[in-house]
């Protein structure tokens, strides 16, 4: 239906998360109306992303240098390590503004059904960071689902006795009505209640 270059771009854009063929068509025709410079800037940005971004040598967050901005920042508390599944999980924690320690990105969560075992995650590297000394607390911030909880329990068992291991609290989301909460979340919230 479309000339080959148009069809090719639609196909490529359709591979992006949340972009169906209809959205890909809209983006393609939007780009057709823009100048060549705009299109080149977008293409160059994508190539630069792939060429320059790699994993931080210490925490495995994305970075364009050897260490990421968090690991390079001397003002952050290096005795705290917050363990997350993916680099995108760091964003809400940073936006929260309560945490000033370092991170460790596992690259997923243990899931035997999907064939993800401990050796597929960066657990060995986390243990090495703790073994190197200077860490007083490891905060498990994996997702509050079965795979995330299993991963947290597995790592807590590995690090037990070496360092304090804590887990992010589970409970009711701020701004929600209790009436609509599911039973599992309410149970967790009740177990994790705190004194006022």
């Amino acid at each position: 239906m479309f000339p080959a270059p148009v069809e090719q771009l639609i196909v490529e854009l359709s591979k992006l998360p949340g972009i169906g063929r209809r959205s890909a068509q809209r983006i393609t025709f939007f780009l057709l109306r823009r100048s060549r410079d705009d299109a080149a800037a977008l293409a160059e940005a994508i190539i630069a992303l792939k060429d320059k971004i790699h994993f931080c040598a210490q925490c495995f967050n994305f970075t364009d240098e050897e260490l990421c901005g968090f690991c390079r920042d001397a003002r952050r508390d290096s005795s705290l390590i917050c363990v997350v599944e993916e680099p995108s999980d760091i964003i809400p924690i940073e936006k929260g503004g309560e945490y000033r320690g370092l991170y460790h990105v596992l690259g997923g969560a243990l899931s035997p059904l999907d064939g993800v075992d401990p050796e597929h995650l960066r657990i060995r590297e986390l243990v090495a960071r703790v073994d190197a000394g200077g860490v007083t607390e490891v905060i498990m911030a994996t997702n509050p689902n079965t795979t995330g909880e299993s991963t947290s329990m597995y790592i807590a068992d590995l690090l037990r006795g070496q360092v304090k291991v804590t887990r992010l609290a589970s409970g009711l989301p701020v701004g929600a009505d209790l009436e609509y909460a599911d039973e599992a979340t309410v149970s967790r919230a009740m177990l994790g209640r705190r004194e006022l």
Binding site: N145, T146, P173, G175, A176, Y180, A181, D182, E183, A184, T185, R188
Partner: peptide, 14 residues
């Protein structure tokens, strides 16, 4: 999403 009404109900074995 955090505010999903289904989230906690859809863990394995439920």
């Amino acid at each position: 999403k955090i505010k999903s009404r289904f989230g906690g109900r859809l863990e394995p074995f439920t």
